[in-house]
Write a protein that binds this DNA or RNA. Structure first.
Lengths: 349, 349
DNA sequence: GTCACGCCGGCAAGGTTTTGCGGTGACCGC
DNA sequence: GCGGTCACCGCAAAACCTTGCCGGCGTGAC
């Protein structure tokens, strides 16, 4: 029952004025315009005649960033699968750097207004346990979307409290398997080059890492963990801190992207990988096998995950089978250890 | 002047029927419904009530692929600039692999139907001189868009015959500068690891390459050029062919992405870079400085180019200054030689 | 052959949005 | 203080879309 009249009443202006705001016509005071727009964002306005846009064949893909190649890889895999199912994809980069950049929530609004039928969130904002001030999605943000009937699927966005289907790698197992690999090679001082502390995936990997270490009574204290921003620079900084402090003979990393920075920092210090330092990455980005040395890493099954995510979304979009037996909405994929050249037994101390 | 009447006429049905389709009411044959919908996608329908969408603040970004990190980098830079100007961006990956994937033209249609105000094409399809059969944009494709008043800007899409503003690097100069750098180091057999022959940028680089070689009377025949698909695999394959045939002491590459494959293939063959083989890339992707050895490359000024492109588009979107003095629509940026570790004088033969 | 039924067009009433026009008030120069 | 100008906004007419109703047409069943 939303119409101009209701908007007008809420904004305390006439219908004409709302219409003019909507049509960006001149003759409306900026202040009034803002008031109308703010009302409009509270109660999204869907003109009549937009019925056709209900079934648009378009879905939204939200990724946190593009500089880590794993996200373009996910985007491409999701897109290919979506195309096969007859959907076209709109990609949004939700955490683009730059002060004026838009956040996830703004993008979701925009996509909805553009008539997408559903969305796939890759590493959604909610996995930031403490989101930075001012950018925080209100607690009810995703819940509100759900209540509005927005169809969505998370990829690597584990959120037990939310009734959103989730396709995820077992991050904890990834941390565990990477660390076991190093332990079995004989390493005893194994560091963790971690992303920011607020990142849930990094926390889960850390849990796996410490579990693997404690099995053999190896040190798993916080002095063996270095947090840094995602990206090669962060990886380099984190491993530098670890090397200066506890001199690990091996490190695992939150991502291949960070691991690349680790490789670089080791090179800069004259440390040979894997002779002096073993490195394990995560994700298995396409470039991992092209590094020198080629990265040992835990592979996310990107295509399988993308397929599962898009299929689940398509399933929920299909008007015929919209209801679904309440059940396990989470699909967990096991990462796969890919041993390449960046790991070896530790140097004889 | 779009209204239900026009749609109805084009679809050969009555206004009532169109309205019923739009509102998903029963009593319309599926076949008729499809016909109306297809007309609707041809001439995007903007109900009066949709005036809000006339000025949507949304622009489309079309990139050919995401696996070469230069494209995510461009996308991010474009997006940041657009956000600063109050636009949000929708990203489309126009040449996603997979048979069912959508092409550039389909994406453009879809974006238009979703109400974008303008578009930035990065390396548009038109730069494929001979596009593969079946995917060919009809000759009039871009011209038709222009005639329809679609606002667009090309990045690296030099097309003198089309009245589209273009922001581009000087590809020919890039090829020239890279080759000169190698010539000055003393190389005399310099190969070109090129993308597909149909790629215009690769052709331009080749022109620069041969110009630089001919200045010194060095060989610039086609036996020194190896074409391969873009990507590391292509780079590896192309350099393998060159090494087997003419044994160059240095190569330049169509992209850093290909150069990474060259590095890998050299490593595989036990050739040390730069001792046995010098390599020059193009683009200066963020990872170029993290390779081992770090890549010498020609840097595209990505941020400046993105800024110029978005600003030009915004300028054309601004209703107040829509007209523009007819003039030079092309901005050419000089690539910058960044010397790192992958080039050195040739081995003493 | 007849009937039922689904589908579509025409019409008109009713609702919604757009837009031309005029009123109001702020501001400015005199 | 006065009149003029201008931006801004509401009124109301016009334009447009939705929807119910009915009739025509073709198809297929009986």
């Amino acid at each position: 029952m939303s119409g101009l009249a209701e908007i007008a009443r809420a904004a305390g202006v006439s219908i004409s004025t709302v219409s003019r705001v909507l049509n960006r016509r001149a003759g409306v005071n900026e202040e009034t315009r803002q008031r109308v727009l703010s009302v409009l964002s509270e109660m999204p306005y869907t003109p009549r005649g937009l019925g056709a846009l209900q079934r648009t064949g378009v879905i939204g893909l939200l990724v946190p960033e593009l500089s880590n190649p794993v996200f373009p890889a996910f985007a491409e895999a999701l897109e290919v699968r979506a195309a096969r199912l007859g959907y076209s994809s709109l990609l949004c980069n939700t955490r683009a750097t730059g002060s004026a950049a838009m956040g996830e929530e703004e993008y979701v609004r925009m996509l909805l207004a553009r008539g997408v039928e559903g969305m796939v969130f890759v590493s959604p904002e909610i996995t930031n346990v403490e989101v930075p001030l001012g950018r925080a999605p209100r607690p009810s943000y995703y819940a509100k979307l759900l209540a509005d009937g927005v169809r969505m699927v998370f990829v690597n966005g584990a959120t037990p409290s939310l009734d959103v289907p989730d396709v995820t790698v077992d991050e904890q197992h990834a941390g565990y398997a990477a660390t076991r690999h190093l332990v079995e090679l004989g390493h005893r001082r194994i560091g963790f080059v971690s992303g920011p502390a607020r990142s849930l995936p990094s926390r889960l990997k850390r849990a796996g890492w410490s579990a693997a270490l404690e099995e053999d009574g190896l040190p798993a204290g916080s002095e063996y963990v270095a947090h840094a921003p995602f990206g090669p620079e962060g990886g380099a900084a984190a491993v530098a801190a670890l090397l200066d402090a506890v001199r690990p003979t091996a490190v695992i990393c939150s991502s291949d992207h960070m691991a690349i920075g680790v490789l670089r920092e080791a090179h800069r210090r004259g440390l040979a990988v894997p002779r002096d330092l073993s490195v394990v990455g995560f994700d298995d980005i396409p470039l991992a096998s092209y590094c020198s040395p080629a990265l040992t890493t835990l592979a996310q099954p990107i295509e399988e995950m993308a397929t599962a995510a898009v299929d689940e979304l398509a399933h929920r979009l299909d008007p015929d089978r919209r209801r679904r037996p309440a059940g396990n909405y989470t699909r967990v994929f096991r990462p796969r250890l890919v041993v390449r050249e960046s790991t070896a037994p530790p140097p004889p101390s």
